[in-house]
């Protein structure tokens, strides 16, 4: 009775099933810091392979009146991560009676990401907002918490399309300033918004995982007037406190094909 078993062995080898806890949900995020403002943007398409799961899944979230977080990569991890960051910020508010400063949020995010060093949140984070000294700031992270403060950063599916464009338009790379003048270190708000919109329309044109909608969050420093936002239609204010930093969101349509 042993014989048939041995003869059948090659046919009855156990098949192994491996559970993969991660997927990639496409989309792109981007943030640019100005002298006294910050713009954080992301598209709203969420996809898996060639399937569009939804045309409206926000990737950019208001954390406080001076901090906005964009999260890209594995959407489930991203949403969970934002939820946990928000929870930590609420605890901070209860303990200290004020909102956490931006640089502290950045360090908190690093700690939270590195805590999961060996089962990471599969997400790239970009944090934008206003520092305590009133300057616009952008912090970018890798999935395990390496981070740095920068003037601009793109991440996600179309990073390779957008980042070199930003190098050229924000850092003026490969451009020489006219004689006896220098390139500006910070650009005015309307210029930044145009660059953000151009970046996303370009990415939408050439990347299948980018499109549907665009959400741009704008954080203005305390006491800054609304100069530069006059021509912007459909702007919505999300500020919760008086006399502090102000947060706005602007939504735009992107191509849906």
């Amino acid at each position: 009775m042993l014989m048939p078993d041995i003869a059948m062995a090659p046919h009855t080898l156990p098949t192994q099933h491996q559970f993969n806890p991660y997927t990639e949900n496409g989309g792109t995020i981007l943030a640019i810091a100005g002298a006294d403002f910050s713009v954080i943007a992301g598209d709203t398409r969420q996809s898996e392979g060639y399937n569009i799961q939804t045309r409206y899944a926000p990737k950019v979230f208001r954390l406080t009146d001076r901090a906005v977080l964009a999260v890209n990569g594995f959407a489930a991890d991203g949403n969970m991560f934002v939820k946990k960051v928000k929870q930590r910020l609420e605890w901070y508010r209860h303990a200290h009676g004020k909102d956490m400063p931006l640089r502290a949020i950045a360090r908190l995010i690093q700690t939270m990401l590195y805590a999961r060093r060996f089962f990471p949140y599969y997400v790239y984070n970009i944090l934008g907002g206003i520092e305590e000294d009133g300057t616009g700031a952008v912090y970018s992270f890798d999935p395990v918490g390496s981070y740095e403060r920068e003037a601009c950063r793109a991440a996600g599916a179309a990073q390779s399309l957008v980042q070199p464009f930003l190098d050229n338009q924000i850092y003026f790379k490969n451009q020489t300033a006219p004689p006896d003048s220098a390139h500006p270190t910070h650009l005015p708000l309307p210029t930044v918004l145009s660059i953000v919109i151009d970046s996303f329309t370009s990415a939408t044109e050439r990347h299948i995982e980018v499109g549907d909608g665009l959400e741009m969050y704008i954080v203005l420093a305390r006491g800054r007037n609304l100069a530069g936002l006059e021509g912007i239609t459909g702007m919505q204010e999300l500020t919760t406190t008086q006399d502090g930093e102000r947060v706005f969101v602007v939504r735009r349509e992107l191509k849906k094909d």
Partner: peptide, 30 residues
């Protein structure tokens, strides 16, 4: 990414030169 952002129709030779040069230079730097 760069060409989609910088290119526009009907560029004159010198403007086309600048556009293609900036596109190439900034792309290869990344």
């Amino acid at each position: 990414g760069l060409a989609e952002g910088l290119w526009e129709p009907d560029l004159e030779p010198e403007d086309l030169f600048e556009t293609i040069s900036q596109t190439l230079l900034n792309a290869v730097d990344r």
